[in-house]
Simulated assay, not measured.
Amino acid sequence: MKVFHAFLLSVVAAGVLMFPAMSSAASLEPVDSSGVQIQRQEQNGITYLSGGIGEDEAKAIQQSTGYNLHMTFSIGTEGKYVPDVELAIQSAQGQSVLTLSQAGPLVYVQLPAGKYTVVATRNGESKRDTTDVGSAGVRNLVFNWKGDE
């Protein structure tokens, strides 16, 4: 039984280390708004938030509601947040829906229900994912690049 508990503890610890953004996502701690510069923005009729540099800014975004696509950008095995991502979201028909430069490390978007392709590029390396955003619930996408820690 001790072996099982030790194994279970190591699995939980590894999960927290691998996905730090998710472990803090549920944080309801108060945010010091004096250091937060997050503003709701709009492009092509699509509302979004981009930022999360610093703990208070990250908490402010994570506590935001009304966004059905949440994206996190990070590097390395520790999942260190990075704010320098080129982001492109396209509809299933290939039409550009949202294009951002220097996005992240957190980007929350309110999209109409539908299928989308998301391409996140950092230092010339692109990561691609597809998602089906419904009218209810939140889709979470995590983009992680190996290098330069």
Rank of each mutant, 00 (worst) to 15 (best):
H70Q: 05
G35M: 04
L17E: 07
L106E: 11
S96F: 07
L141H: 12
G79N: 05
T117K: 15
S91T: 13
S33P: 04
Q37G: 13
S27N: 15
A26T: 12
F143P: 08
A88E: 14
G15I: 05
V16P: 09
S34Q: 11
G76M: 03
A88L: 10
L100C: 09
A113D: 06
Y48G: 00
V85F: 04
Q37N: 07
A60Q: 09
G35P: 06
V12M: 15
V85Q: 02
P112K: 07
H70S: 05
Y48E: 01
T99N: 13
H5Q: 07
V97I: 14
N44K: 07
P30V: 08
S96R: 07
S27K: 01
I61C: 00
E78L: 07
P105I: 00
T117Q: 15
G94E: 13
N44C: 06
L98R: 02
E149M: 04
G54Y: 05
P20Y: 08
G76H: 07
G134L: 05
L98T: 08
G66N: 01
K2E: 12
K115F: 01
T117H: 12
P83A: 11
E29S: 10
I38G: 00
P30Q: 06
R139E: 08
K59T: 00
A88G: 04
L87P: 10
A92G: 12
Q93W: 02
T99I: 11
S64M: 00
F7E: 12
Q102K: 13
V119N: 09
T121S: 15
V82S: 07
E29Q: 14
R139I: 02
Q110F: 01
S27I: 10
S64E: 00
E29Y: 06
Q90E: 04
I53F: 02
Q95S: 14
K146L: 14
V3L: 09
L111V: 08
P30Y: 05
L141S: 06
V107I: 12
I75G: 04
P112Q: 09
E78D: 03
V31L: 01
I89T: 03
I89W: 02
V109Q: 00
V3D: 13
Q93L: 10
Q62P: 01
S101Q: 13
A6V: 14
G114K: 03
P105L: 02
H70P: 05
T130P: 01
K59C: 01
V133Q: 08
T72M: 06
I89K: 02
Q90L: 04
P105H: 03
R122H: 12
W145Q: 04
F7M: 09
T99S: 15
G51Q: 01
G114H: 04
G137R: 02
S24F: 08
R122Y: 14
S33A: 09
V36A: 02
L106V: 04
V3Y: 10
V97C: 02
D56S: 11
Q62V: 03
S10V: 15
A21C: 09
G147F: 10
E57A: 14
K2N: 10
V12S: 14
A21E: 14
G114L: 03
E29G: 12
F19K: 05
R128S: 13
A58P: 03
M22S: 11
G79V: 12
S74A: 13
E78N: 05
V107C: 03
E55P: 03
K80C: 02
